[in-house]
Amino acid sequence: MSDDIRQQHDMGGLDKGPVTLDEHEIEPWEKRIEAIMRLCSMREDPILTVDELRRGIEELPAELYDTLTYYERWIMSLTNILVEKGVVNRTELEERVRELEAME
């Protein structure tokens, strides 16, 4: 496949440099994002699936995909899909984010 028509996530076979073995401990807020995902997907009647999470990540604009950290990509994808499915609506979500900010 020609590299100029690849989507951002589709990087198999490219060369993005040497592997760095540094690791960071997952932080509590990152664990909460992971937990929201699992609780939405690991149920009899899943609200969203792992494939959908990935699809949502793949739909992020390239510049966001590249600048967000791993779990930041997850929460963007998660919220976009939850809004798309009508589980939450964008307005109430943004309202809550502002409320949390005001409380800080």
């Binding site: 807020w29 994002i33 967000l68 929460i75 919220t79 939450v88 109430e92 979500l93 809550r96 949390l100």
Partner: peptide, 11 residues
């Protein structure tokens, strides 16, 4: 993104 996560969790 932390607030977005917590807002989502709360909702």
């Amino acid at each position: 993104y932390q607030r977005l996560a917590d807002a989502t969790r709360n909702l």
